[in-house]
Write a protein that binds this DNA or RNA. Sequence first.
DNA 1: AACGTTATCGGGAACGTTCCCGATTCAGCG
DNA 2: CGCTGAATCGGGAACGTTCCCGATAACGTT
Lengths: 349, 349
Amino acid sequence: MPKEDAPEFVDTITIKDIAKALNLSTSTVSRALRDSYEINPETKRLVLDYAEKMHYRPNPIALSLKENRSQAIGVIVPEIANTYFSQAINGIEAAAYERGYHVVIFQSQESYEREVEKVEHLAARRVDGVLMSLSSHTFDIDHLKTLQDRGMPLVFFDRIPTSIETHKVVADNFGGAYRATLHLLESGRRRIAHITSQPGLSITKERLSGYLAALKEYNIDHDEQLVKFCTYTQEEVEANLDALFSLAAPPDGFMTASDRLALGYYGGLKKRHIRIPEDVAFVGFSNLNVAELLNPPMSSVVQPAFQMGHTAAGLLLDLIEKKEKFPEYRIERLSTELFIRESSCPNKH
Amino acid sequence: MPKEDAPEFVDTITIKDIAKALNLSTSTVSRALRDSYEINPETKRLVLDYAEKMHYRPNPIALSLKENRSQAIGVIVPEIANTYFSQAINGIEAAAYERGYHVVIFQSQESYEREVEKVEHLAARRVDGVLMSLSSHTFDIDHLKTLQDRGMPLVFFDRIPTSIETHKVVADNFGGAYRATLHLLESGRRRIAHITSQPGLSITKERLSGYLAALKEYNIDHDEQLVKFCTYTQEEVEANLDALFSLAAPPDGFMTASDRLALGYYGGLKKRHIRIPEDVAFVGFSNLNVAELLNPPMSSVVQPAFQMGHTAAGLLLDLIEKKEKFPEYRIERLSTELFIRESSCPNKH
DNA sequence: AACGTTATCGGGAACGTTCCCGATTCAGCG
DNA sequence: CGCTGAATCGGGAACGTTCCCGATAACGTT
C-alpha cells in the first residue's frame, strides 16, 4: 500500500551526482572510487576529493540488489535477555565484524510460530547466512530444511537439530552434566533431581545422558520422578517442586539446565525454606556472571558462550565465502567447566 | 573488491519470472499482486495462484532501493549483555514488530570510536530511524548531530545528550536516586557513598542530583570523597574501595548506579568481608532479575526497561511516519521503583 | 458514424551500482 | 604514413520493483 508521504530527503549523494558535478560518466566515477587502473590518476583525485568533500557513501542497498547479497548474517535465538545468548551474540558480533559482516538479530521468544516467521523474514531480507539456536517449542524443522535446500548457508549452535546436515557448535553438555552429577554423588547425595528443558532439544538429551551416566557409575537406577522437563513458567516451578517434595524419598540434590531454570528453582527452594546446601545440594547449568554473589554462591557448569558464538559465526562465514569446496559438515564440541561453590558443598562445620 | 565466486543461487522467483511464465507484463503482475482494481479478477487469480505455488516473496531490497527506506530501525546500545539493555531491546522489538518494522542491533561497547562507526553504518544502510543510548565515552556528539541534520529520525533513551533536540525517553533517575538515598538516611546511615558512571552522562548527573537532594534534606554536606565516577574495570573497583575505606570516616552506605557497578561493588565488599547490611547498607540501581537471590538480597532501584524501549521505539516510529506535522520534541520520564531488601535493612535482631 | 468511457494491459523509466562493450585519442612502430 | 595498442573514458544493460503514461479493445452515447 503506497503511502503519499514524501520520502525522507536524507541529502545523500550518489555516484550519479558526482558524475554530473564533475562532468564525467557514472562508470568513470564508479571505477575511480574503486581505484581501477584504467582511470587517470588526476581524474581519480578529482573524484576522490569531491566524494570526500560531499561525504559520499556507497548505497549498500543498491549493492545488495546487484550482487544479490547483503553482507549481513541473521541470528535467531530464543531470547536475548539471557546471559548465555547475549554472551554468544557478543562472540558472533566479534567474528562477523572481523570479516566485514553485519549481524541482524531476531528472537523467537521460544515460540515455534515466531521462529518460522523470523526465518521467512531473514530469507526475504536476503541475508547471506543464518545462525540459529532452536526455540524450545520447535519440533518440526521443515522451515529450516527448505531454507537450506534453497541454498542458504545455515549453522546451528547450542540447541541443534539432529536431522539437518550442516555445521553445528555445541558445548560438551554430556560431559558437563556428567561431572556435575558426579560431583553431587561424590558429596554424598543419592536422590538427585534433574531439572531440564523440553525433551525434544538436543541439549536436553545430552545433559540427561550425562546425568544418567553418572548415576550408573554409582549403580543408581533412573527414577523418572526425579527428572522434570520444563517450560519456563513460574507456576510450573511450583508444581514441580510440590511433586518432588511430596515423594516418599524427596531429592537431596539438584542438577538444573539453563540459566532460567537454575534461577527459578533456586528461588523456589529458598521460598520454601529448603536450605542449600544443607537440605539439597545444587548445581546449575548456567552462564550467570553473578553465580558467585548468590545466596549461597551457586555451583554451576559454565559454557564458553562467547567462544561458541565466535566459532559458529566463523563456520557460517566460511560456508558463505565457500572457503571449502565440499563443505564437510562438522560438529564442534566445546568443553564446559564446572565451578564448585557453596551451593553444592558438603555441610560445613 | 569483486570476487569471482558465483552468487548464491537461492532459487528465488521474481515478478519477472511470473510475468514470463504467464505471458504477462511485469506491471500487470505487480498490480495483480497488490490487488489493484484495474486488473481482471481472473488474471489476478492466475497470478496469485502461480505466485503462491512458486513461493514468491517480494524482494525487500529492491523495494528499499526504490522507496529509499528499509522498514528497519537501528538500535545502538553500549552492550547487549546487560540486563537493562536487553530488556529495553525486548521492548523496542515488540513496538517495532507491532508496526511492521525490523530491528537491527549494534553495540558500541562503551567506546566512542565504535559508536561513531556504528552510526556511520546505520546511515549507510539506510535504516529509517535510529534509537540510541550513548556510550560512556561519548563526549562529542557531532556524529549524531550531523546524522540528524541529514534528516535521520533519531530518538534517545536512557543515556541521552543534552544538546540535541529530539524525543528522549528516560527513567526518573533523580527520583530513584533521591528515594534510594533517603531510604539509607532514614535507616540511620550518614556516610553514604555514591558510585556512579562517567560524569558526562545525563543519567550520572540526574542521579547525582537526586543523591545530593536527599543529603541536603538531612543537612549533610556533599563530601566529594564519597562520590566515585567509574568506568567498568575491576581494578578500579578495588582502587575506589581502598580509597573509601581508608577515609577517616569510611562509608556506612552505598548507592550505586547501573547493574555493572552494583555487582562489581557488591562483590568487592564481600571479598573484603565488609558485611552487608551490618557494616554498610547497599542500594543498587539495577534491573537484575536475580537481585532477590543475592547474598544478601539486594535493594535496588528498578527502571521500567521494557517500557522505556517500547515508548522510545514508538516515538521513533511516529517520527518516521510523520504522524505529527511539527514534531514537538518531548522528553518522556518514566517512573522508577525502589525495592527494599535485606541489603539496606537496619541491623536485624 | 464518430466519439467518449471503461476495463484491462504493456512499455519503459527510475532507484544506485557495477561491468561488459565499445569509443576516442595519441604515441610509437615498421 | 597507416596501423597497433595503450590509456582513458562513456553508453547502457542489469539487479527487482513500482508507477506513470499510453495503448487497445469493447462498449455506450449522441
